[in-house]
Write a protein that binds this DNA or RNA. Structure first.
Lengths: 243, 243
DNA sequence: ACAAAAGTGTTGTGCGTACACCCATGC
DNA sequence: GCATGGGTGTACGCACAACACTTTTGT
């Protein structure tokens, strides 16, 4: 090989992952302190360089695995970022991905060894390079996506309650919804199977657990879906998310 | 420079442009025959290699300029394609863009010198590499985008008639719409200014020209917009687009 | 005079939002 | 027994789809 394009420039290609999680009623981002120069010690999203023998998706999965130890992560390509001076070290093109993980899945043991932390999206610090842009874009994409694909479940444990699910939607959209309307509409999709068991930590009465129905889920993921609700009258959540 | 990442792999990065146009009631794609190896002589979208000193957007604009001679083109990043063997010549990552052109703008003189041709999206040939995938994805993105941003105008000449505009929407979505509903809804956006002049080629009666209102356009482009209509009862356009 | 395309209003209904009270339990 | 969060049904309004006839003018 190596015969066709010898006169063309070659570039470093990085992969950066915007990793979302949901915990304690808040949408969070997995951030870490960069461990090499340039910008060592500053906050960033997880990233790495693309290797010669891996595809973009494979690269992203490798990086997610390194950080979380998880192999089965919902992940999509976000966008490429390629301003000439975006990385002060050297000209590097970054292909950003976004991913959704279940925070409690394994407590992200590896994340700790990497010095990673979950940070509420309402308190994102200054990040290196153009990572704040990436996060912004990722958030926007997540908000759009959740309307047409029932991906909320990727952020929740296998069993969850309706109040939890609603608070997830509220956290993502930064607005409150009407309880009755939310329950009615989400249930009539047929996407949820009610369990007999109740969750009793967060209330005396207890809320029924639900699981999502995998066949319906797959169906909607392919065929399309539409779940969008207006915010409750005059109630945007205070302190709008500032990335 | 050149001090930080010396152990990492470098890659060829290509930029490929899915260029849409609208003419004679059909949505078209600007395709050309590849002029160098590998795959010389086969159909492809317009592309080129990213240079060291240009950003992704700059690269895409350079390539669009080369092919069309136009500098002011509506353009967005689509997605990156990076399978290891997608280019049989050498491992190359492609960052795809999509663009909208007014076909009659200057008759795309340069396009001809490049051996480019407008091809109806219903008759896309076999393209090299993963270019058919790119086109597929571009089409999907265009269809989604036109719901939330009034970009249809980027495909039409400065002055256009309502029947033309409707046929554009129909060509993009491959479905027919109700004339009365279409006119009513598009007019009540305030996006269109009626001219006094009529277009008289395509009918005896003649249809009034309209221009789009640039302020409203900018407003919608930022603030958001929503224009979607169900297809006319039982009338998908025959011969669904096969990419 | 007729063919061919442009232009024009009204009605019904389904979806989505607003809204308030009872229930179960732990303390 | 009371405080806390979970669970439930209805009514109204609006946005959207359905639908058919008249107008203009070139030939």
């Amino acid at each position: 090989m190596e015969i066709f394009y010898i006169d063309e420039d070659k570039h470093y290609v990085a992969i950066d992952c915007i990793i979302f999680g949901f915990d304690a009623g808040e949408l969070k981002l997995l951030l870490l302190k960069r461990k090499f120069e340039p910008a060592k010690g500053e906050w960033s999203v997880m990233g790495g360089f693309l290797k010669r023998e891996e595809s973009l998706d494979e690269g992203a999965r490798r990086i997610l695995l390194q950080l979380t130890g998880l192999t089965d992560i919902y992940m999509e390509q976000l966008q490429s970022f390629g301003d000439v001076n975006r990385d002060p070290g050297e000209r590097t093109i970054s292909i950003a991905f976004w991913a959704l993980i279940k925070v409690n899945d394994n407590d992200i043991k590896l994340a700790k060894t990497h010095g990673a932390q979950w940070v509420s999206i309402e308190k994102i610090p200054q990040l290196i390079f153009d990572h704040n842009n990436m996060v912004q874009k990722g958030l926007k994409t997540l908000r759009n996506k959740i309307v047409t694909k029932p991906i909320g479940f990727e952020l929740l444990p296998e069993k969850f309650t309706l109040p939890q699910l609603q608070s997830l939607y509220e956290a993502i959209n930064q607005e409150q919804m009407d309880k009755r309307n939310f329950r009615k509409r989400i249930l009539e999709t047929g996407l949820l199977d009610k369990m007999e068991e109740k969750e009793k930590q967060s209330s005396k009465k207890g809320a029924y657990y639900y699981m999502f129905n995998k066949e319906k889920y797959r169906l909607f993921a392919e065929m399309g879906f539409h779940f969008q609700m207006k915010a409750k009258k005059d109630s945007l959540i205070k302190g709008n998310c500032q990335v």
